[in-house]
Amino acid sequence: MEYFFELFLGGLTRGSIYALIALGYTMVYGIIELINFAHGEIYMIGAFTALIVASLLTMAGMDGMAVLALSMVVAIIYAGAYGLTIEKIAYKPLRQAPRLSPLISAIGMSIFLQNYVLLAQTSDFLPFPSLVPEFSFMEPYEHIFSSSELMIVVVTAVSMLVLTYLIKFTKMGKAMRASAQDRTMAMLAGINVNRIISTTFIIGSTLAAVGGVLIASHIGQINFYIGFIAGIKAFTAAVLGGIGSIPGAVLGSLVLGWTESFATGYVSSDYEDVFAFTLLVLILIFRPAGILGKTKTQKV
């Protein structure tokens, strides 16, 4: 039973990280129907920024939660700026272009960012300091659920609550939903849709950066390629839950996290991806729009 809990909590942690990244995919898709393939790279850049800041702070003699908090803040700002810039450079000029063009631009951006970090940093794995201190109250459970896993789950839950509040109750959030439902009408209502799109990219990037910092600190090493892997998984989770749907992205991420965790625990870690993608294929066969996705009837 304890083993089951361990896998369950492990899956929850994985799912949380996927959710933080998947939200960026799904929100951007919801508004401009673009798969932002460079989104995983934002996650990776967030982790690298945090590594640099954390190293500097540690050298300056700081430690504990302050390092985590500060490097997280800098990573968020940095990643937000990247998200905004990517949108302005790679997608905005292609707003009126056929749908394939921004998609190709996104893939190009992704490759560019990976190689930029590869050249600016290194291709080797870099050790990442463990930024989350070990909480004493977690000691009895440490063997099944570590402090940093707890931190991941809590921070994700708080982020989700804040995001839900933003989207449901603020004027900006309502305008985001309006723009996702009917972009032309949003323009006619006086909503500056370009600004809404930029905000969406910033929010998505912020969440990805939070995920990047937390997971890097948990795993203890990063390289330029982590964004690609995590990005593909999170994208899978977003599709699983129904791309464009925010609750869908969270649900899809948790389902994917648990599938992987249980497959690893009960079968073999070699089969983790097999199970994850088999699940994706099955969902797409029986519910093509994803778990919570709505099938859109297209008017002709």
Partner: peptide
């Protein structure tokens, strides 16, 4: 008409007064 289908009637009206 282009009503925002997922927004409530009140929210639709709010969007009209967005600026």
């Amino acid at each position: 008409r282009r009503i925002f289908p997922g927004l409530s009637v009140m929210e639709n009206l709010e969007m009209g007064a967005f600026l």
